[in-house]
């Protein structure tokens, strides 16, 4: 696998929507290769004939009874909102970004 440098870490942080300081980018890019090397051994045994497991105890089509249950009130749902407005979640400008 290719080495992961400062630019790669900055790009990942951008994708993950996390603002990092220069110092954080330095530290994380210094650690990344060692961690990925340590975990990359999985590919040694993960051959084509081995099926993947995504869930420890497989289940399919899980439904609950179709009965009416309580939900949060609008007031409860908004109680912890950083900027509630007119009974809704107030969010910053989302259009007109690059």
């Amino acid at each position: 696998m290719p080495s992961i440098g400062r630019d790669d870490v900055a790009r990942l942080a951008d994708l993950a929507r996390i603002q990092l300081t220069d110092e954080e980018v330095d530290r994380l890019s210094g650690e990344f290769d060692a961690i990925m090397d340590a975990v990359a051994s999985v590919s040694e045994v993960a051959t084509a004939d081995v099926p993947a497991t995504s869930h420890p105890i497989p289940m399919t089509n899980v439904f609950r009874e179709d009965t009416v249950t309580d939900t949060l009130t609008q007031e409860q749902a908004l109680a912890a909102a950083p900027h509630p407005e007119d009974g809704r979640f107030g969010v910053p400008q989302i259009l007109g970004e690059e």
């Binding site: 990925m36 990359a40 999985v42 590919s43 993960a46 051959t47 099926p51 993947a52 497991t53 420890p56």
Partner: peptide
């Protein structure tokens, strides 16, 4: 990575 890890899980 993720695909191989899921196989190891098996």
């Amino acid at each position: 990575y993720y695909g191989s890890a899921q196989k190891v899980r098996t």
